[in-house]
Write a protein that binds this DNA or RNA. Structure first.
Lengths: 132, 132
DNA sequence: GGTAATTTACTCGGATATCCGTTGTCCGAGTATAGACGG
DNA sequence: CCGTCTATACTCGGACAACGGATATCCGAGTAAATTACC
């Protein structure tokens, strides 16, 4: 079990957008170069972020992506959910009663992690990070 | 990102072994029937648990698997590590300085989950669980 | 009846097949800006 | 000048390919108990 590279790309892209304090949108070319990933693939990832309402895209010349108003409250968990999906990490498909104790334990542990990720925003990092 | 079915099988098998309060080893056939999984596949999973020293195997007739002495202290995390591996869930492979702030956040969150899984043992469930 | 040979019931491990999510690539379509061109 | 026309620079989204790990299956080898055969 691993977090996908896409999640890593998404987090880094969000951080990059947050730190480029410009109102103009940033082209996917620029963003892709930073992370050495193909622009087309990165655009697919960004589309997910757009659909979740974290990022806006502008078509045409001088177009690109930029953070939505109120981006300061976007948490790590929001971004991870957008890429990985919102479903639980552990699912027991056996039919041994309505409640699987093992599943309960796993979900409680997962909740602990999510709680941490929910309380951490991209904005928290902007102050600390100097170079991208 | 999902926990593998193998992890689910491993956890349920451990719980089953813990609850079958017999000194005799339990055959993989029996264990596989409980979870409706093929015996050969389950044996592969059990081999991992044997290698990590949580389970012992006895060859030959009347052979099978049984928990090691001191199994009461085996945690969820031990079992998960045995199946999924011990490596971190999130790894940033970019070369932007020695420490990636994003990675730091992810690792801290992951630690929270592992802490919970480390403090939960199979033995904890044996008392609560009545039927398998 | 005791010993040896054989059958039976298991685990172990390697090789292999299948499936599916991840990670990309390619391309056509749509869109907005910039520049060229004609009046 | 001013409006239009075209080239250019982008994003968007669907189709598709490559890859690797998860999920099995098959089979031969080893092992220990149970059973049988033999003297």
């Amino acid at each position: 079990m691993k977090y996908s590279k896409a999640t890593n790309y998404a987090l880094h892209t969000m951080l990059h957008l947050a730190m480029s304090n410009t109102t103009k949108p940033v082209g996917v070319q620029t963003l892709a170069e930073q992370q050495q990933v193909s622009p087309t693939y990165l655009s697919k990832i960004l589309t997910k972020l757009v659909k979740e309402g974290m990022v806006t895209s502008v078509s045409g010349a001088n177009g690109g992506y930029s953070l939505v108003h109120g981006w300061e409250s976007i948490s790590f968990l929001d971004i991870i959910y957008a890429i990985e999906g919102k479903s639980s990490l552990f699912e027991c498909h056996f039919n041994h009663g309505p409640e699987c104790l093992i599943q309960k334990v796993m979900l409680r542990a997962e909740e602990k992690m999510e709680e941490e990720l929910r309380n951490q925003t991209i904005a928290d990092l902007v102050n600390k990070e100097t170079t991208f």
